[in-house]
Design a protein around this nucleic acid. Sequence first.
RNA 1: GUGGGUGUAGCUCAGCUGGUAGAGCGCCGCGUUGUGGUCGCGGAUGUCGCGGGUUCGAGUCCCGUCACUCACCCCA
Length: 439
Amino acid sequence: MSDKPTPLSGFPELLPEHRVVERQVIASLSRSFELHGFANIETRVVEPLERLAKGGEIDKEIYVLQRLQATRHGGAEAPEPALGMHFDLTVPFARYVLEHAGKLEFPFRRFQIQPAWRGERPQEGRYRQFTQADIDIVGRDELPFHHDVEVVRVMVEALDALPLPNLSFQVNNRKLIQGFYRGLGIPDVTAAIRQIDKLDKVPAEAVRALLVSEAGATEEQADRCLELATIRVADTSFVERVRALGVDDELLETGLSELAAVVDGCREAVNEHVRVEANLRIARGLDYYTGTVLEVFMAGYEHLKSVGGGGRYDALASDGRTTYPGVGVSFGVSRTLIPLFSDGVLAPGPKVPSRVLIAVVDEESRSASDAIATSLRRRGIPTEVAASAQKYGKQIRYAERRGIPYVWFPDSNEIKDIRSGEQQPADPDSWTPTEETEQ
RNA sequence: GUGGGUGUAGCUCAGCUGGUAGAGCGCCGCGUUGUGGUCGCGGAUGUCGCGGGUUCGAGUCCCGUCACUCACCCCA
């Protein structure tokens, strides 16, 4: 065998025809976010390890970055601070906010589209290096609730603009669940949330038993929790259905009105392609979320789990004196695009950006072909000149293989649209490709 | 990290109870000698993942190893 490298599992690389589509997606997302006034930032790839490793499950997956030399000397040298590569964009962003708080305008709204790294077992839609698109709004000391509505709506609009299968935003509110459980009198509210979160893997009966054994609920309380978790609607009718369960709690009421506001606030933005539903079983693990929580699912790709998610955290960051509450949503660019490419659901783009191939008659007249190319390029038309003066049939095939739609014959000064076969005389100083809408 | 599956041509894969490597697609050439795609004819391509073992003989059986892949865990 030669030295042909084998692929590295979990570190996907795209071919040019897929990369061009990914770039269009990233450009489209950026446009959408900027349309709503989100500023772009890029954070460094590494953070001090102690900032990333907070003792959770994720710690085992953190990639550590160190100098080769540092390992060779086995600690004999003065130790350098251990650096870990970020596993999401939220942790570095929180650090960024604290570090630059004095120079930022609050509420600070930013978007960030970058890779992240997690050393877990790769699978479809799950990689060790993946690109993520995040938007967040952060306030100083306080952040009005209407930003929860805003951030969801912005992501709805941004994803609606992409050529993806149907998407569904499943929204819930931590205050709603917590208030409900509290009002119901369940001893361990946090444990109850954790059990309810298992509903999509564990049968309802088992969850019911766990609610009793782990969260100290009575049989009847467990039933009520399960009833709450089955509520899933695309409008605000869930409010009445929850009230009908007869639980009275102040936090529950706040949660109900907040969730209603999110669903209601997205009404103008949703459509057949992207829908927003109140889904009262969404809990998002035991993260730092304190209010709005949501997950995004893609039709036909439910097995990927969520392709996006987010929510409200009352303490995104804190320096001890000031607390910075935030609300954000992230979208998994790699998780979404790569499976769509391999299934052929998302069509690849052209292999090269060239719109026109200038044929070459013979090597002596190559400069004539170059001159035509130059005048097209001057007018912003991506153009390349044929690699060799082969028979025209070969040169046309060269263009076809690369997805170049036009071939220019310099001897006759005619241009051929190889998709339709039409050929007509053209002037290098005025010819323009007909504007077809791509994708 | 735990448990399954699979490694054969550029790609997708076939290859029975061991007998010296195949198909389709793609690629190249010609028909059409400077206008592609269709069609016809012809052609090239492999250390059968790697290392060891059993055997007269291993793609095939055994052991090891590496890679890829699926599920669990967890999440984008």
